[in-house]
Design a protein around this nucleic acid. Structure first.
Lengths: 171, 171
DNA sequence: GCCATTTTATTCGCTAATCAAAATATCTAT
DNA sequence: ATAGATATTTTGATTAGCGAATAAAATGGC
């Protein structure tokens, strides 16, 4: 196999490739979704709970508002998720002294331990195989993923206001 | 920019790239998730409901068991989702004559119409931008996405039914 | 033909996620 | 000091999802 893919590019039809990449994208989504479920079962936590725990552990501590923003859920939901984690002894709540409105959520030793000992199988599988790839292919994948991410995020920004308008005319 | 990325590959640290690609992957997942929510709001349906409708429309008709398999949920859930769609007049239930246990779920005219007019910002923006890319970059992205998909599926190779979110891709 | 097994769809009881709106407590600026 | 802003939680509701139980119909062995 060679580094440059341009030759292979000529083979497939031009229009197919959009479809092909969308299909590939969906396969990736599907795989990660399945992964999330098995991970959830393995740790005894649900996926949203695990996400919150990861956010908190990554930052060292976080307010419910931080969590809500980073996890992409409402504040009420964030509170509910923190409740569950706190009940399981994986995080603690501490009221701030400087601003008594804010609550710091921090992982307990047990919470950190759980993240360490229950590593994401997605990450594991991916990492293991990714690191076996030749250098050029790693670089290609990084570039492609970032490209796709940028494209999708650009779309999300454009689409938001547009959708609000169109949301009414149905039903 | 040139076709071959090998030069750039030398720049970044070797270990970073695994992390970088995981981060990029998460951005993609996040974007598609947000997209699903806005799409759901725009159509007045929830994401699982939309998936079921797409499965039914793609196949012409489907039994609750089919749906359950393709959507990756239990039969009870499939029944519940069909209930919602039926209540909104987007699908119909018909008992089979040959085997009176089975129920055929088929889209109504209104259901098909909704899928046609439903804006799918993810697909739309992705396609629009993807098609503007130079040939070599398209090929690179397809190759990379398929590579990643294969790697992830290797981890969870239960060959689960494909998520038919697309409504376009049929084998 | 008859009974046991399997298959298909549905119902029921329960947990979790999620949101919007209201309630509470606290801070900040005037 | 008071009005408004901010952070969190509570409340009330909907949806998704699972597993177990149920009902109805097909199938296979005898």
């Amino acid at each position: 196999m060679v580094c440059c893919l341009c030759h292979e590019a000529e083979i497939g039809g031009m229009e197919d490739r959009t479809q092909t990449s969308l299909i590939a994208l969906r396969r990736i989504l599907r795989a990660t979704e399945l992964n999330a479920r098995t991970l959830a079962r393995a740790t005894g936590l649900t996926t949203p709970q695990l996400i919150v725990l990861e956010i908190v552990a990554a930052a060292g501590r976080a307010t419910p508002k931080d969590i809500s923003g980073k996890a992409g859920v409402g504040q009420a939901t964030a509170t509910a998720l923190v409740d569950k984690l706190e009940a399981r002894g994986l995080v603690t709540r501490t009221r701030s002294d400087l601003d008594k409105r804010v609550v710091w959520v921090a992982p307990t030793e047990e919470g950190r331990e759980l993240l360490k000992t229950a590593p994401d199988p997605l990450q594991k599988t991916f990492s293991a195989q990714f690191e076996k790839l030749p250098d050029w292919e790693q670089a290609m994948i990084v570039a492609a993923l970032e490209r796709v991410g940028a494209m999708l995020n650009a779309g999300a920004l454009d689409a938001a206001p547009l959708l609000d308008v169109g949301a009414v005319d149905r039903k």
